[in-house]
């Protein structure tokens, strides 16, 4: 079922939803960007449709809603502990098909990677429903078509924003009550992007051998990458974290166990007890990330991890392009194959 709502009516819809839901969308933080007088666009709670930034790609993904950057798991004193709480509202997220497909990768890692589910992820994730933002044209650096992430049916509502009205497709009947008496009923089906200007040739995973891990193609990244980890932080599918116990300053006998995001490009990622550390060379970090996104995840779970949102390319201060890297992998494998024959 479809609806056509003026922005005003859509705001009434949001008002109705706010009672039950925390509503997240990409929003603008004016002058909070990396460079002075630039804006930051990232996920945050919205109050009205005008808050939603739908004409630009967000700098960061929506993963922080279900996988907070900093999360306290439990608090402890000398002889007892108490698990942290989460809010009691449901969560509605406005996001594009690439990110919905990215959320499935996060689900795989946190919920279906072995016998134990990550309860801290699950307790937020189970509250979530998706509002898919139609994405017909994509943005710079997007290559979702190459990763089959341009399309999804996993949403409760799909929306097309225009300057003054919103077209909605309603798939989840639990939202029907919020729409009644608001807009004009109509047939609306979202459209999907069919072609990106960036195209990626994903490698065939069974062609990748352990020798390839030492291939010369990685070498250039040892000088180009600076190990800042922006790519990890912006990525919808990077899901690494690290736990640490924090002893409170005023009374070190009380504290908390906290987990925060970690990134394979960032120092300390491989630190071990005793001071041992791997992948000191930045090219090996680039290789590790690349192989996770387009090799071992696929071997284990049947689809590639990278969804082609291109945020890593958007954010890299050194102009390292991940899509170019993937193409280099595929090309190098082909060349090596033909050389061997």
């Amino acid at each position: 079922m479809g609806y056509r709502l003026s922005n005003e009516k859509f705001n009434k819809l949001l008002d109705g939803l706010k009672g039950e839901y925390k509503i997240y969308a990409p929003i603008r933080f004016p002058k909070r960007g990396r460079f002075s007088d630039t804006d930051l666009i990232r996920y945050g709670e919205i109050n009205k449709v005008e808050d939603v930034v739908w004409i630009e790609k967000s700098n960061y993904s929506p993963k922080e809603i279900v996988f907070p950057i900093t999360q306290t798991l439990f608090y402890f004193t000398e002889d007892e502990f108490k698990e942290s709480m989460v809010h009691n509202k449901k969560i509605l997220i406005f996001l594009r098909p690439c990110d919905i497909n990215g959320m499935r990768r996060l689900d795989t890692i946190f919920l279906n990677n072995g016998p134990i589910k990550d309860v801290y992820y699950e307790r937020l994730r189970e509250k979530v429903k998706f509002v898919m933002m139609e994405c017909k044209d994509g943005f710079e650096n997007c290559f979702c078509v190459s990763t089959n992430s341009n399309y999804t049916q996993d949403y409760s509502i799909a929306v097309r924003f225009t300057s003054n009205e919103v077209f909605c497709e309603l798939k989840d009947e639990s939202f029907q009550q919020f729409f009644s008496n608001l807009g004009t009923e109509m047939n609306f089906k979202p459209e999907y992007i069919e072609e990106n200007s960036v195209k990626v040739q994903l490698p065939e995973v069974d062609k990748i051998t352990t020798e390839f891990f030492n291939h010369d193609m990685w070498k250039e990244y040892s000088k180009r990458c600076i190990g800042c980890g922006r790519c990890n932080m912006a990525c919808i599918t990077c899901s690494c974290f690290t736990n640490s116990d924090i002893a409170y300053e005023e009374n070190p006998n009380a504290g908390e166990r906290r987990r925060v995001w970690a990134g394979c490009h960032i120092d300390k990622f491989t630190d071990m007890a005793g001071g041992h550390s791997f992948r000191q060379d930045y090219s090996s970090r680039m290789r590790f990330k690349t192989m996770h996104k387009i090799y071992d995840y696929k071997k284990r779970f049947g689809e590639h991890m990278c969804v082609g949102c291109g945020r890593c390319d958007d954010i890299c201060p050194e102009y390292i392009s991940f899509s170019n890297c993937i193409n280099k992998v595929s090309k190098t494998l082909k060349e090596d194959e033909s050389n061997a024959q």
Binding site: K31, R32, R34, S36, L40, R42, N59, C228, G229, W261
Partner: peptide, 12 residues
């Protein structure tokens, strides 16, 4: 400039 997550930002 160095922060990868925009934890640091400028007061406008």
């Amino acid at each position: 400039l160095t922060c990868p997550t925009a934890a640091w930002s400028r007061n406008p």
